[in-house]
Nucleic acid binder design. Structure first.
Lengths: 103, 103
DNA sequence: TGAACACATGAATATATGTTCATCTGTTAA
DNA sequence: TTAACAGATGAACATATATTCATGTGTTCA
């Protein structure tokens, strides 16, 4: 049992830049709210926008960021495009953060 | 066993703003590198700066952010001030993100 | 008490980033 | 094929934030 806060091997600097980019994506309330909203099941863009009471354009822009970082999955059905979280991993990262915020 | 990516109860909007602020702190490579560096054990500011090959002022500014967010612990010994990670929780958040970055 | 050292901090600057507005693409149904 | 709808996207703008420079604070030791 290793209980001290150190890494088995110190992460490469290169990797830490990538990691920072990942956390940056989680570091925006709009994106977090989107992720939580679609964690309950896939939803089209306009529905997300309505639930969050924000403009469609804003949501689209942020969904693009989530897409580029492979945090969401996309599916087209007719005129609508459904988004949902890519996998449980995304949810776990949020929950891990929540643990800290909720003391 | 719940295996679908949804939250038991959808986090409050207020909380999500706090959570975004937390992730924002992790979303900077300098702060991540500092956190990883001091995860091996407490270090004075100048040593951290030398290890990262950055200015003392830059490190101090970022350590302040980490302090304000209670992610590091501080101890003064003479002229030097030693910093280390506050607890295992911080390390776990980083590791959770690393898992995702490393596929 | 004063010099040297370790660190913190305010101001200034450059850069990154989120939102809005206008417009564009792609799909459906008349 | 045209109108209406859903969504994407570029440009512009405002704001946030990381770094640097100069300087301030606190500690040690001569």
């Amino acid at each position: 049992m290793n209980n001290n806060p150190s890494f088995d091997s110190l992460p490469d600097t290169e990797i830490l830049f990538e990691l920072a980019d990942l956390f940056k994506v989680f570091g925006d309330s709009t994106r977090l709210r989107i992720m939580c909203t679609i964690s309950e099941g896939e939803l089209p863009v306009m529905t997300i926008a309505e639930k969050l009471n924000m403009e469609q354009s804003t949501i689209s822009h942020q969904l693009r960021v989530l897409r580029q970082n492979k945090l969401v999955r996309v599916r087209r059905e007719g005129k609508q495009i459904y988004y949902t979280l890519d996998d449980d991993h995304v949810k776990r990262i949020i929950e891990m953060g929540l643990d800290h915020v909720l003391e």
